[in-house]
Design a protein around this nucleic acid. Structure first.
Lengths: 214, 214
DNA sequence: CTTTGCTTACTAACGGGAAAGTAAGTTGAC
DNA sequence: GTCAACTTACTTTCCCGTTAGTAAGCAAAG
């Protein structure tokens, strides 16, 4: 009962290193096998430990999973020059850049793809995480659209909402297809094309209102 | 060598009914829990049997999963007026209609979303199924684009490829977000918007490069 | 019509084998 | 010496697949 991974306790630097090593291994394992199918023993083996050692650090498998997700968020933001995701129109460029970067790291992409879909199953521990993630991202994209649109005339709120969800959707969906067929689907360019198409559709909606042609 | 319980034997009508009952239950269970986490006992319970009874009909869990996927394909096609998915430009309308229909059946949507993501994990039994599925769908969409585009000038092949993948991607991605937030994301209209945006982007790409002809 | 023989559709019970978590002991760093 | 970082060993709990047995159907023979 003594050694629980308390929040504010970061005593040893070597310990911290070991913890992040476990987290990285867990991304790999959960990405390759899913969080249900991937085992603590799998993670432990990759860092040269027993599964009890992993539990010593993270308490439970569920907790490990949640810390993996939190760790990735933190690590992603650290890569940026600024300390946060850019807002406004620059957000769209950031999303395209992210797609190109993701093509360089299939492991993390696979983890997110598998875990996000897994999260909709009954009582999944990562459900809350992904609900909040999508809510936040949609709001940020919506705000970026509004900044873009106030220059031109006002754009239908429902259109912007659909566009925001659609942009995240193409990115996710293309990742899945890219993971299945890396040589057929070109993640970066395809994402760029689709995002551009959606942004254009929003912008050209105000000017040409009644363009309901097929 | 006479009547063995083998391949093409479907003697009893009551048996066939029971089998489809099991298949429907399996869609539900695998949708709610994933194919790894959902158990044969779960499926069996829903049809009032023991898990051994399910195995009697389907041999193994893996086989049940594959038959579930095959069953849904067959059932989907049966709903159509024609016996096959329409080709040509009408395909895009069909995809939009499908999105609106899917908003009426979260169970199947959830099953496909969960299983398609699960399929990219190590040695997943449904991997081949989804690889072929996406390959086929992308080819059909690509052909539809070509029919659309030959009227106007030729369109860049890479653009068409990106668009075909993107259309499937938005549909998948929107389904995930809709399952997480049914009251926020409007599956049908959002899919329609995104598909229209992508189709327009392809059509306006060829013409705008050279000159505008109508 | 009934008996006989075989097949189908199950159930109950079990075995094997993961996998998560716990408890207690051990080692090495500070 | 003390405490963190482990390991070994164990318990529990699942779950798939097998096996053996039962009840019911069907079909042809008597």
């Amino acid at each position: 009962m003594s050694t629980h991974t308390q929040d504010a306790m970061r005593p040893r630097p070597a310990t911290l290193r070991k913890r992040t090593e476990i987290l990285k291994a867990a991304v790999e394992i959960f990405g390759n096998k899913g969080s249900t199918n991937g085992t603590l023993a799998d993670v432990a083996e990759q860092v040269g430990m027993t599964h009890a050692g992993v539990l010593h650090h993270f308490g439970s498998k569920q907790n490990l999973l949640l810390e993996v997700l939190a760790y990735r968020d933190q690590a992603d933001v650290q890569d940026l020059d600024e300390k946060h995701i850019p807002g406004g129109p620059e957000l769209f460029l950031h999303l395209v850049r992210t797609a190109f970067m993701n093509a360089q790291r299939p492991g993390i992409v696979q983890a997110y793809t598998v875990l996000s879909a897994e999260s909709i199953t009954d009582d999944h521990p990562a459900r809350d995480y992904f609900e909040e993630r999508y809510t936040t991202l949609r709001r940020e994209i919506t705000e970026a659209f509004h900044e873009l649109c106030t220059a031109q005339g006002v754009t239908e709120p429902s259109t912007v909402a659909a566009a925001a969800a659609s942009i995240l959707a193409v990115m996710d969906g293309l990742q899945l297809q890219w993971l299945l067929h890396p040589d057929v689907v070109d993640l970066g360019p395809a994402s760029e094309f689709a995002i551009r198409a959606i942004v254009n559709a929003v912008l050209s909606e105000g000017p040409s209102l009644e363009s309901h042609r097929d």
